[in-house]
Amino acid sequence: MLIDHPLLGLRDSSEFIYMGDAKLLNRPNWKSKNFKTKFIDYGYLRKNPAGVHKELWYHEQGDRSWLVVTRNTVTHEILKVELARYLKRKANAK
């Protein structure tokens, strides 16, 4: 698989480390209500879809950025690649 890195262009996926579901970007607040249930969900439960999946890839053998890759888990087609830090900044600005 080739991942179209927003800054570096097409890179081989074997340069990356895979971290799974991009829901890991949204860590629950430990002061929130039901934080225990939320953390169990965050730590252990996954939707694991057959189809479009947003997931985290870390460019370890490159610029060490975290990417959010939107990929089809049935065909391995990569639909979209974004920098995780930009997504996070955008979310925080709201």
Partner: peptide
């Protein structure tokens, strides 16, 4: 990586 493809990749 997550996959339901029943086939893998070359690396």
């Amino acid at each position: 990586y997550n996959s339901y493809a029943q086939r893998g990749n070359l690396p």
